[in-house]
C-alpha cells in the first residue's frame, strides 16, 4: 500500500540521487530552455526533504504538501505542472492513510488530465505529458511496487525513443522548432530519472 512512509522513502531517494542527474538535465534544458531544470528539481527535492518529517499520515494531505514544495521553489511551468499532477492525486487520496498500489495508474490518469488542462497541452506534443501517459498505461493493473517502477521506467524510456525525432509542439522547446528534433524533451527525461531514482538497480 502507498502510505506517507512510501512518500518519505521516495523523497529520501530523490534527495540522494537527483544531484547526480543535475548536470545532464541542466544541459538538456539549456539546449532548449533556460538551463535550470536540474537545479530546480534539486531545490524542490531539498524542500521535500525538509517537509518529510512532518508530513501528515493522510496520503492526500501529504501529497498536497509535496505539491507545495514544488510551487515554493520556482514559478517554472514544469514545477507547476508536476505540482498540478500531485494535487490531482491528493484530491483522490484525501482522507486515506493507505492507498492500494493498483490505484497508481488511476492517480496518474487524474494527474495527466489535470496537467493537460492546466498547461493546455496534448499528447504527442513531446512534453512530460507523454511520459506520464506512458507510465499510466504501463502501470495499469500492477500491484507490486517493483513491477510498477519497472513498467513505468520502461514505458517512459520507450516514449523518449519514440518522440526523439519529433518536433516539440508545446512550451519553450516549441519556440526552438527544428532544434528540438533529434533531442529528448528535458521534462520527459526528468520524469524518467525521477522513476529511476526509486529503483535500487537503476538509480543514477
Amino acid at each position: 500500500m502507498l502510505t506517507t512512509d512510501s512518500l518519505r522513502f521516495a523523497i529520501g531517494r530523490w534527495a540522494e540521487c537527483l544531484p547526480r542527474c543535475a548536470d545532464e538535465l541542466n544541459a538538456l534544458d539549456g539546449d532548449l530552455g533556460d538551463g535550470d531544470l536540474g537545479a530546480n528539481l534539486i531545490r524542490a527535492a531539498g524542500r521535500l526533504e525538509e517537509a518529510a518529517p512532518q508530513l501528515p499520515a493522510d496520503v492526500g494531505l501529504a501529497l498536497l504538501r509535496c505539491a507545495q514544495a514544488f510551487t515554493s521553489v520556482s514559478a517554472s511551468t514544469y514545477g507547476t505542472l508536476l505540482a498540478t499532477g500531485l494535487m490531482a492525486g491528493a484530491r483522490l487520496t484525501k482522507g486515506r492513510e493507505a492507498v492500494p498500489w493498483t490505484e497508481i495508474s488511476v492517480l496518474l490518469e487524474a494527474a495527466l488530465r489535470a496537467m493537460m488542462q492546466r498547461g493546455q497541452g496534448q499528447l504527442g506534443d513531446k512534453t512530460v505529458l507523454d511520459a506520464v501517459e506512458a507510465a499510466r498505461s504501463a502501470t495499469a493493473g500492477l500491484a507490486a511496487p517493483a513491477a510498477l517502477l519497472d513498467a513505468a521506467r520502461g514505458a517512459i524510456a520507450q516514449a523518449c525513443d519514440r518522440l526523439r525525432d519529433a518536433r516539440p509542439r508545446q512550451g519553450r522547446a516549441r519556440i526552438f522548432g527544428d532544434k528540438g528534433i533529434g533531442r529528448d524533451d528535458p521534462g520527459m527525461v526528468a520524469l524518467l530519472r525521477l522513476v529511476e531514482c526509486l529503483q535500487p538497480t537503476a538509480a543514477p
Binding site: G60, L64, T77, T84, M87, R118
Partner: peptide, 16 residues
C-alpha cells in the same frame, strides 16, 4: 497565462 495558471493552482490548494 502565468496568473491564470498560478491562481488556479492556489484555488486548488485552499480547497483543502
Amino acid at each position: 497565462g502565468g496568473d491564470n495558471m498560478n491562481f488556479d493552482m492556489a484555488g486548488e490548494m485552499v480547497e483543502f
